[in-house]
Simulated scan of single mutants.
Amino acid sequence: MDVDVTVQADIRRPRAEVAEFATDPANVPRWYRNIRSVELLDAPPVRVGSRMRFVARFLGRTIAYTYEVTELVPGERLVMSTAEGPFPMTTTYSFSDLPSGSTRMTLRNHGSPSGFGAVAAPVLSRAMERATTKDLTRLQRLLERGQ
């Protein structure tokens, strides 16, 4: 069974500012509660082909995985897929303007776990949805308070 979780938040900041902050690997541990560290494995700036090593704590376990940027449209979209890790996962950040001048950020995680992960996919999906909803709320608060 696949995991496919999409959450979004409306953030009262300009799209360029939200996208710049959210896509900077150095900021990820500030707004993702479960991410302990992110290491950019290639020279900055982030671009298609850039790899990032994440260490996270999720469902009581420490996991490490490497993402590779597969698509980047600055200020609009960032797509990363696991190059190595516990199961294949693609994460997409999308940013769009709202009529109010705010930004809607959409965060999608989708993948196909195997082994125990496949059996646990429904539980994993619910846990990911709860966690990413909290993460976007945290990002919203950070940016609306001026970081």
Rank of each mutant, 00 (worst) to 15 (best):
M1P: 07
D4W: 02
V5G: 07
V5N: 11
V7W: 08
Q8I: 04
Q8W: 11
A9N: 03
D10N: 05
R13L: 13
A16R: 12
E17P: 07
E17R: 13
E17Y: 08
A19I: 00
F21M: 05
A22C: 05
A22L: 06
T23G: 08
D24L: 00
D24F: 02
P25Y: 06
P25H: 06
A26L: 08
N27W: 01
N27I: 01
R30L: 15
W31T: 01
Y32D: 07
N34C: 08
S37H: 05
V38H: 02
V38Y: 01
V38Q: 04
L40Q: 15
D42A: 04
D42P: 02
V46I: 12
R47P: 09
V48W: 02
M52V: 01
R57L: 12
F58H: 10
G60I: 14
I63P: 00
I63E: 06
A64F: 00
Y65K: 08
T66S: 00
Y67E: 13
Y67F: 07
V69E: 13
E71F: 05
V73F: 15
G75I: 04
E76Q: 15
L78F: 09
M80Y: 00
S81Y: 08
S81D: 00
S81M: 01
T82C: 04
T82S: 09
G85F: 05
M89C: 07
M89T: 04
S94P: 02
F95M: 13
D97A: 12
D97F: 10
P99D: 12
S100M: 12
S102G: 15
T103P: 11
R104C: 15
M105T: 15
L107M: 12
L107Y: 15
N109W: 09
G117N: 00
V123C: 06
R126E: 13
A131F: 04
T132E: 12
T133P: 01
K134L: 11
R138F: 02
